[in-house]
Amino acid sequence: MSDLHFFSGWNNLWRPGIVHIFLFFLYVMNLVSFPLPFTGEIRPYFILMVIYYWAIFRPGFLLSAFVFVLGLLYDLILGFPIGLHAFLFLGVQFLIIRQRLFLMGQTFIMIWIGFFFLCLAFVSVEWIFFSFYSSHLLPLSSLLGIVIFSGVLFPVVSFFLSLLSKLLLPLSGAHLMKSK
């Protein structure tokens, strides 16, 4: 009996552990640019993909406190105005969780298109903020590249996230499926 308890405890640890390690890997990926031809500076929004995916399929998994810390660290490391991405990431998570029942009923293509629009809206808000912040209209060309690159990579990342989601199935207690 105690052995069974040990293994279930181990299960409770390593499964979310792997998911968090993958999240951490994607987070580090967001600190590195991808030198692609004709694109200049491209940094796909891996964190946005993760927030979007988990907000739809596992809304209780990424706690808002965790998203807040992710956003805060993102701002601090990349030298953005502190709190900006914490606010934006939390806003995205909040809005997607509000719409998750609608999105869950859609095909993957629709969810993918949804991500494209989300990414476009996210980048647009950033562009408006930084244009005001620097009193300078920033170039739009590289931003379009970010949206396209993030959108193209979304199916790959969501494939891995769906695998990880299955890992969490045995743990799908009330705390993971918590939603409205």
């Binding site: 406190a65 807040f68 105005p81 502190i82 914490a86 606010f87 969780i97 918590k178 939603s179």
Partner: peptide
């Protein structure tokens, strides 16, 4: 839900302070 309002306000306050 999940303390969103609290952390959104915290982020906004930090942003204004920053």
């Amino acid at each position: 839900f999940d303390g969103h309002a609290f952390f959104l306000v915290c982020s906004a306050v930090l942003l204004i302070f920053g």
